[in-house]
Design a protein around this nucleic acid. Structure first.
Lengths: 352, 352
DNA sequence: TCTCAGCGTTGGATCGTTCAAAAGACATTA
DNA sequence: TAATGTCTTTTGAACGATCCAACGCTGAGA
């Protein structure tokens, strides 16, 4: 089957609908139908048209489709400045892209200025009809995007719960509380009782609060005290992170559950500085399962997010919203999974 | 100045060229000229049209522009499967996006299947006129993309030298050799003589070979032997990485320069396993300056790539290629910078 | 016999923009 | 006055697809 490409570099320019139509001896509308509503055609016509499409290597022009249908089949994603580094962004983007492509969509990147996303970028993309919807991430309290997009009737989905006052919009999130809960369970089973939590400042990050919550409820369930066992670091400051670990260790903690792998690393640092060995003297569990986790010594136990599923669900919810703008919002909470490595396999040194 | 938005959610649909024209009392072509060739208009007409454009919040429809001009103002970037994790991808993508936007372009993501990029994704994007060009990364020997794109006359730029036989195409790369050379210089200044290099298998990665080369030439310049001081790990296997470090340490190396932060971490692991402390017993320098480098204990010295500059140059070269398809190829080699942290500040323990 | 819905297909209008070329305005020159 | 040229604006036709309203024909129901 000689399937030549629709290359515009080949002589004669791109293959158009009309060219296919002429060669197949039908009108261009019929060719269009062959692609978009094959059931309208008589089987033999369909067969013939399809063969010609294949022979000529025809592919519809996205620009023309977009102009006519007013749908670009593009999904916008604002990529934040690297200030707040997200170690698994590459996997997330790959997952979203792949899921989008399976539905005939693609991801359009645009740069969000440092210091939090503004609405300008979103407005420009919309006004120019460049995108059909958005995937948001890093949605925090006070983020104006959700309300603004909702008001304008723009489809969007958030990766991360959106808790600006009353909940609005669709989102997909990971049940962080469930993850830290499982981490505590694992540590308790090993015999740990003094389990600390190292997170961010209360209220500064909703995901952080969520993860703290899981730790707290698991501790309570086992009748273990949490008082004085919660350390608060500021976001993105490794010095503060290290300082925040100290009172926890001074309090005799034999295990630390951290709200991110970065914080877990701060914990490693402080332990090393004191001449202690992470994993042996104090068990550590991180969050995110970033690529470096398994390369550390000892290998860092961490709570892995199901990124492929997240990407899939984001796209699914977004397409559903486009199809039914007035349907009730849908929220998906996915389970993370605890990846146990050497940093959390030992029982407490002093017996708990 | 009441600048209302071009929202399609507002009643009446989007603002078009014709609507602006009617309101300004000119033809739509004149409005188009006001935007694309302002010098054709009489100053007072230009002023009036511009005011109306601003009042109505008009923004040209990208789809219509694309259809007419045959240029989508989009740049394709194939994001590889997460198998080969690249820790600074987020910073690279942000940099490229930002640079692209300053030139009126945006980045279109598409998922490359695991196991190396295929041409299908590129062909589809081209045939549908979705992109004007590509940014490639992870270009290795035997990569068919460069030759294929060149043959079809598609503009592209590589991040990473493209060494498939004779060089083709434009690229931007980091002078890895210069980076490892500087690392050796730094270590020599500290008094180290037995400086090992931990890289990947010879020939498996061109960037890896390049980085090895810099180490070798610096060693030779100082009259230091390199024999038996080069360790070879396979890509992406931390066990092999750890094993590869051992002979280097057994050989009495007091410092290790690694071809990536991942490999440097393997080095940390092996040292810890032997009860040694990285940075104190053996100096370690990584490559990439991934976000975790400064969070390790001791903080990992690393060679940082100028990602913002890389993004800017990629876009610049790509646009130049589009403007002049037959111009001679341009290659940019950027200098990385050594970031010294605790892992490489001590003189050799035994005196070198 | 007449109407009418359904069949697979078609022609024409349309989406919003830019290109090419014609047309108008105005001053200059013969 | 008419011809010439320059500067500014308009007209008409694409770009390549989809939407809509019909086409002529058949068979079923009234």
């Amino acid at each position: 089957m000689p399937r030549s490409s629709n290359s515009s570099s080949a002589k004669g320019g791109p293959v158009t609908l009309a060219m296919v139509a002429r060669r197949a001896g039908v009108s261009s509308q019929t060719v269009s139908n062959a692609i978009n509503s094959p059931d309208l055609l008589r089987p033999e016509t369909l067969e013939r048209v399809r063969r010609v499409i294949d022979e000529m290597g025809y592919r519809p022009s996205r620009a023309a489709q977009t102009l006519r249908t007013r749908s670009s089949k593009l999904i916008g994603y604002g990529i934040q400045s690297a200030a707040f580094s997200y170690p698994v962004l590459d996997r997330f983007l790959h997952a979203v892209s792949q899921a989008a492509e399976e539905a005939g969509y693609r991801i359009l990147l645009f740069a969000c200025p440092p210091g939090g996303p503004t609405l300008d970028g979103y407005e420009e993309l919309l006004d120019q009809h460049e995108v059909d919807g958005f995937v948001l991430s890093g949605t925090e309290r006070g983020d104006p995007r959700q309300a603004w997009l909702t008001k304008r009737g723009v489809p969007f989905v958030g990766f991360g719960r959106m808790w600006s006052g009353r909940p609005i919009g669709d989102w997909v999130d990971v049940d962080g509380a469930s993850g830290t809960d499982a981490a505590v369970e694992h540590l308790v089973a090993l015999g740990h009782r003094k389990i600390a939590f190292l997170g961010w400042e209360r209220g500064s990050s909703s995901a952080g609060d969520d993860r703290a919550e899981g730790w707290q409820r698991a501790m309570r369930r086992h009748g273990l005290p949490t008082r004085g066992r919660r350390g608060q670091s500021s976001v993105n400051d490794s010095d503060v992170a290290r300082a925040a670990v100290k009172p926890l260790l001074d309090g005799g903690a034999t295990a630390v559950v951290a709200a991110s792998d970065m914080l877990a690393l701060g914990c490693y640092q402080t332990l090393r500085e004191r001449g202690q060995t992470p994993g042996r003297d104090v068990a550590v569990i991180g969050f995110d399962d970033s690529p470096t986790a398994e390369l550390l010594f000892p290998a860092l136990s961490s709570i892995a997010q199901p990124l492929e599923a997240i990407g899939r669900e984001c796209v699914r919810l977004l397409l559903a919203r486009m199809a039914a703008p007035d349907a009730p919002p849908e929220r998906i909470l996915l389970e993370p999974s605890l990846v146990v490595r050497d940093s959390a396999t030992a029982s407490p040194a002093g017996g708990g």
